[in-house]
């Protein structure tokens, strides 16, 4: 039996979630994602082909090109699988990324405003799904985008939450 995730509830819990992410990033980002979502269903697909929930990507630096970072890593929660992203930092964070799942992939763009000036910078913005493959070939929609960027290691935890249709 699957349980639809409540987006509103997610929003209320988000500041605490981001704070938790920042703390746990220093120890084990992978451990964090496993613990946060182990008790929840991975994917919630409704009959109307909507995808509801939260996906968390723990990305590490693969290579850097000037001010652009190429990152990849596992995704947990809704859309469990892996993700690759090209992230540009600055006064505004922008990213294009693809989430790969066993049912297909979702590609999109994200734009977020960073907060803070220390080692860890949290950010918040939105994610726009632009294309997909497999089950998600006709994916579209906009979701919230949140996360924490570690300026020492260039690793990033990205959380998307919202509803996508496919």
């Amino acid at each position: 039996m699957t349980r639809p995730l409540q987006i509103g509830a997610r929003h209320h819990r988000l500041p605490r979630a981001i704070a938790t992410l920042a703390i746990l990033l220093t120890t084990s980002a992978v451990l964090m994602s496993t613990e946060s979502f182990a008790a929840e269903p991975d994917v919630t697909a409704r009959a109307a082909h909507t995808l509801n929930g939260t996906a968390t990507a723990n990305l590490h630096l693969v290579k850097a090109e000037g001010s652009q970072l190429f990152e990849e890593g596992p995704v947990s929660g809704t859309l469990a699988g892996s993700a690759s992203a090209a992230l540009t930092t600055g006064a505004v964070f922008t990213a294009s990324f693809t989430i790969h799942t066993h049912s297909g992939s979702i590609t999109g763009h994200g734009r977020a405003t960073p907060h803070g000036s220390g080692r860890y910078q949290s950010f918040s913005g939105s994610f726009l799904a632009t294309s997909g493959s497999g089950r998600y070939a006709h994916v579209s929609g906009r979701a919230g985008l949140y996360g924490v960027f570690d300026r020492r290691t260039d690793s990033v935890v990205i959380q998307t939450t919202g509803t996508l249709t496919y």
Binding site: G66, S67, Q68, G90, S117, R119, R151
Partner: peptide, 15 residues
Amino acid sequence: PSDLGFDISGLGLAT
């Protein structure tokens, strides 16, 4: 040039 990685320099981790 903006493609110089000032933001990802790892500099200024504290203030």
